[in-house]
Simulated assay, not measured.
Amino acid sequence: MSEHTRGVFAISVAAEMVSMQVQNLRVYERRGLLEPDRTAGGTRLYSRADVERLQRIGDLLAEGLNLAGIARVLALEDEVRRLRAQVARLRGPDA
């Protein structure tokens, strides 16, 4: 697990970093918009990647999208990233 994806921030810290309410982060998790790490005791730990995703969620909310629309946009963005990485691998190091 990279430093960028390892959960290190408590939910209250992550919420403060993105100026959101803690309850909203729980809703976003329930809706499948993000998946923070969990300690053995069940405490949520957010990574830098999770915080960036929360910022993206906030941006999309500000643009007027509802949570279903945001879920679709995030899924499409994830797919584009995956496909770009696949294309880069197929092209090889010389490309």
Rank of each mutant, 00 (worst) to 15 (best):
M1L: 12
S2F: 07
S2E: 04
E3R: 14
H4L: 14
R6P: 01
R6H: 13
G7P: 04
G7L: 09
V8N: 06
V8A: 04
V8L: 03
F9S: 02
A10Y: 11
A10D: 03
I11W: 09
S12T: 12
V13H: 14
A14R: 01
M17L: 15
M17I: 11
S19R: 11
Q21G: 12
Q21K: 12
V22P: 09
V22H: 09
V22T: 14
Q23A: 07
N24T: 10
N24M: 15
L25H: 05
L25G: 02
R26S: 12
R26I: 09
V27Q: 15
V27R: 15
Y28V: 03
R30K: 06
R30Y: 01
R31I: 00
R31S: 15
R31H: 12
G32T: 08
G32I: 03
L33K: 08
P36N: 02
P36D: 02
P36M: 02
D37H: 07
D37R: 10
R38A: 06
T39G: 08
T39W: 11
A40C: 11
G41Y: 11
G41S: 11
G41L: 09
G41H: 08
T43Y: 15
T43I: 12
R44N: 03
R44T: 13
L45H: 13
L45V: 10
S47Y: 10
R48A: 15
A49H: 06
D50M: 10
D50L: 15
V51G: 09
E52G: 08
E52P: 07
E52L: 03
E52H: 11
R53T: 11
Q55G: 14
Q55F: 07
Q55D: 02
R56N: 08
I57K: 05
G58D: 10
G58Y: 09
G58T: 13
G58K: 13
G58V: 12
L60N: 12
L60I: 10
L60D: 07
L60W: 03
L61D: 00
L61H: 01
A62W: 08
E63F: 11
L65G: 00
L65I: 02
L65Q: 03
L67A: 10
L67N: 15
L67V: 10
L67G: 07
L67K: 04
L67P: 05
A68S: 12
A68E: 10
A68N: 08
G69D: 00
G69N: 00
I70G: 08
A71M: 01
A71E: 06
A71L: 02
A71V: 02
A71D: 10
R72H: 10
V73R: 04
L74N: 03
L74S: 03
E77R: 08
D78G: 07
E79V: 02
E79Q: 06
V80Y: 00
R81G: 04
R82G: 05
L83K: 00
R84A: 07
R84T: 04
R84D: 06
R84G: 01
Q86W: 12
Q86K: 08
Q86L: 15
V87H: 11
A88Q: 10
L90M: 15
R91Q: 09
R91F: 01
G92H: 10
P93V: 14
P93E: 05
P93M: 08
A95R: 09
A95G: 12
A95D: 07
A95K: 04
A95E: 04
A95N: 07
